[in-house]
Simulated assay, not measured.
Amino acid sequence: MRFATRPPTLLSAVTLLFTGVLTGLLTGCVTIPDRTPDEHLSVARWKPRPGTAWQWQLSGRVDTSVAVPVYDIDGFENSAAVVRRLHRSGRKVICYINAGAWESFRPDRGAFPASVLGRSDGWSGERWLDIRRRSVLRPIMAARLDMCRAKGFDAVEPDLADAYTNDTGFPLTAADQLAYNRMIADLVHERGMAVGLKNDLEQIPDLVHDFDFAVNEQCAEFHECPSLSPFIKADKAVFHVEYSVPKRTFCPIAKRLGLDSMRKRLALGRWRSPC
Rank of each mutant, 00 (worst) to 15 (best):
D167P: 04
T168S: 11
T31W: 07
L187H: 11
N98S: 15
V93C: 02
A155L: 08
D38V: 08
D34R: 12
F76H: 05
A142G: 13
Q177K: 13
D130E: 12
A81I: 06
L257C: 06
P139C: 07
R138V: 01
D212Y: 00
F3V: 03
D162R: 13
L187E: 15
R248Q: 06
G20T: 15
L22I: 12
G118P: 10
S89A: 14
T249F: 06
K47E: 11
R191I: 00
K247M: 11
P8F: 09
D260A: 05
D210L: 04
H223N: 15
I232G: 03
P50M: 11
F231M: 06
D74H: 02
P113R: 13
D108I: 10
H40T: 10
T5M: 08
P7H: 04
S12M: 04
P33V: 13
A220Y: 02
R265S: 13
L178Y: 05
K47V: 10
A101P: 09
V66R: 04
R61W: 03
L207Q: 12
P33A: 08
A237M: 01
T168I: 08
T173C: 05
E157C: 00
I232C: 06
G269L: 08
K198G: 07
R133T: 00
S261G: 06
P171V: 02
L201V: 11
T23N: 11
S79R: 08
L11F: 09
Y96Q: 02
F3P: 00
R191W: 06
F250Y: 15
T165W: 07
S79T: 15
V116R: 13
T249E: 14
R132C: 02
V215W: 06
S79K: 06
A143P: 04
I253L: 15
R191P: 08
M147V: 13
S42Y: 13
T27W: 10
S65H: 12
T31P: 02
L11A: 15
P48I: 11
D200Q: 13
E103W: 14
S12Y: 04
D200Y: 14
W46Q: 05
R6Y: 01
